[in-house]
Design a protein around this nucleic acid. Structure first.
Length: 475
RNA sequence: GUUCCCUUCGUCUAGAGGCCUAGGACACGUCCCUUUCACGGAUGUAACACGGGUUCGAAUCCCGUAGGGAACGCCA
């Protein structure tokens, strides 16, 4: 039997981070089994579904590198088939028309609740002659759920789960306007698509019992279910807006690489021994539904940062340069900037956790004038800074063609030894501030080499002017 | 309210009755490296929710308790 899995998002918002993980699990399992992975857009709720959300789902899945077999299936396009199956079930005596009004249904729920029972439909039309139907009322179609006994599902993650059938009411398959309910559409589509394994959030675990009733009525074997726990925020509560990012697009904007997001998400709730860093292709070779955890897990941005740091170092310089430039639309970039960025990338990418940090750290290579941040200003206010900068200026001016890290290093150490009792920081910090506008940067002497003698001298001179304007003089 | 699910360091997890004085990763502490911040290296703190069983032996199996979550729509 060929394994066929699916990911079935409803396009009522952007692709949720939890949904992405569900897609990843389905994708991995199909790859592991040499099967297929299908995509179905559950757009039957016309009020809430939007084209923008559909586009975002495609875009984010592609960004993550999750590809699906064949074309995406739109649930809305299958409405006629859903109705056909419901009508067929009525003909076979597995379902029936119900003419109850909203008011009657509400009364039933209230009555059940008052008796301490689950609010549900009381099955009044189950065995009633349709000829007695009130005139002018469009009926819904309800399933005949089993009246007694129990339903058992062997869930690949949760284990054997049993529910007494007394809990299942005759829920609606087809609405009075002829449209299918979610419960019905899902089952008909899964059946028609030949889905063998349904991996989804455990908020659907209860639904699985209702869906099994429909599969049974249709005479189609029920797929294997694997209900995975939801992802929670750092505080353990369900992921919501106040936790910050929820959608894949937001993680992208925050500067995380798709391979890092995939790795992190896969490791959340699934494990292969102690393995931490792996590609989704590697995970696919290892993947077993039984290795998914039954308990919920929380999003840990610190760990995501760590994983992202790892992949940032592995990433090609050209790719990162493009990402950095895309994050600095305000800058006018010329070839000189590009060359510096390429030369500096090696040291740059070894220190950043996200593309945002990387872009911020790279900025001094992409500007012609440096602005000093608070700490850099303070460094330039140090009472030795002005003299130190003069020494540096003079020493670097003499370097000429040998403007290399090693030569600069020798010159700078000599200044520290001659004037500051060997305290390198006395020389390094003002130099760093003048070249980068910050007190935190990649190795500054290498950066000076990359900037080149002319640009380095220009920035030192600019710093000397700045210090003069801010009341600094020779001591 | 009814039904269902879950529970190992702060977090993600390993663990399938003896390999567990419970291992790894992130985070955190200390030290080393060092021109800053990082990185890297070393090292340390830290968990089987609780209570009963079963067993020669339980983190692992069973039953309760507590805590957390989900579902009960002509939403998906």
């Amino acid at each position: 039997m060929t394994v066929i899995t699916r990911f079935a998002p409803s396009p009522t918002g952007f692709l949720h981070i939890g949904g992405a993980r569900t897609a990843l699990f389905n994708w991995c399992y199909s790859k592991k089994m040499g099967g297929k992975f299908l995509l179905r857009i559950e757009d039957t709720d016309k009020e809430r579904s939007t084209q923008a959300a559909i586009d975002a789902i495609f875009r984010d899945l592609k960004w993550l590198g999750i590809d699906w077999d064949g074309d995406a299936i739109y649930q809305s396009s299958r409405a006629a088939r859903h109705a056909e199956v419901a009508q067929d079930l009525v003909k076979k005596g597995k379902a029936y028309f119900c003419y109850c009004s909203q008011e009657e249904l509400e009364a039933m729920r209230a009555e059940a609740q008052a008796k301490g029972e689950q609010p549900r439909y009381n099955r009044m039309w189950r065995d009633r002659d349709p000829a007695t139907a009130p005139a002018g009322v469009k009926p819904v179609i309800r399933i005949k759920a089993p009246l007694d006994g129990e339903t058992v599902i062997d869930d690949a993650v949760q284990g054997r789960v049993t529910v007494p059938n007394s809990q299942l009411d005759d829920f609606i398959l087809l609405r009075s306007d002829g449209s299918p309910t979610y419960m019905h559409a899902v089952v008909v589509d899964d059946a028609d698509m030949g889905i063998t394994h349904v991996v989804r959030g455990d908020d659907h675990l209860n639904n699985a019992f209702r869906q099994k009733v429909i599969f049974d009525a249709m005479g189609v074997p029920c797929p294997t279910f694997a209900h995975i726990p939801l992802i929670h925020g750092a505080d353990g509560a369900k992921l919501s807006k106040r936790h910050g990012a929820q959608s894949v697009g937001e993680f992208k904007d925050m500067g995380y690489l798709p391979e890092a997001v995939c790795n992190y998400l896969l490791r959340l709730g699934w494990s292969h021994g102690d393995d931490e860093l792996f590609t989704k292709e590697q995970a696919a070779q290892w993947f077993e539904l039984g290795d998914i955890n039954a308990g919920p897990s929380r999003l840990d941005m610190k760990k995501l940062d760590h994983v992202n740091t790892h992949y940032l170092r592995l990433a090609e310089d050209e790719r990162l340069a493009a990402e950095i430039l895309a994050r600095h639309p305000e800058l006018k970039i010329d070839d000189e900037h590009r060359i510096r960025l390429a030369a500096g990338m090696h040291d740059l990418k070894a220190r950043a956790a996200t593309l945002i940090q990387l872009a911020a750290e790279a900025k001094f290579y992409l500007v012609d004038e440096v602005a000093y941040d608070e700490k850099a200003s303070a460094a330039l206010h140090d009472h030795d800074a002005h003299n130190a900068m003069h020494h540096i200026y003079d020493a670097l001016a003499r370097l000429g063609a040998d403007f290399k890290e090693a030569a600069i290093d020798t010159a700078v150490r000599k200044i520290a030894a001659d004037h500051y009792e060997g305290k390198l920081a006395k020389v390094m910090m003002p130099l760093r501030a003048s070249l980068t506008g910050s007190t935190s940067s990649p190795p500054i002497l290498k950066a000076a080499e990359i900037l080149g003698q002319a640009e380095t001298m220009k920035r030192i001179k600019a710093a000397l002017h700045w210090m003069h304007d801010h009341g600094h003089h020779h001591h």
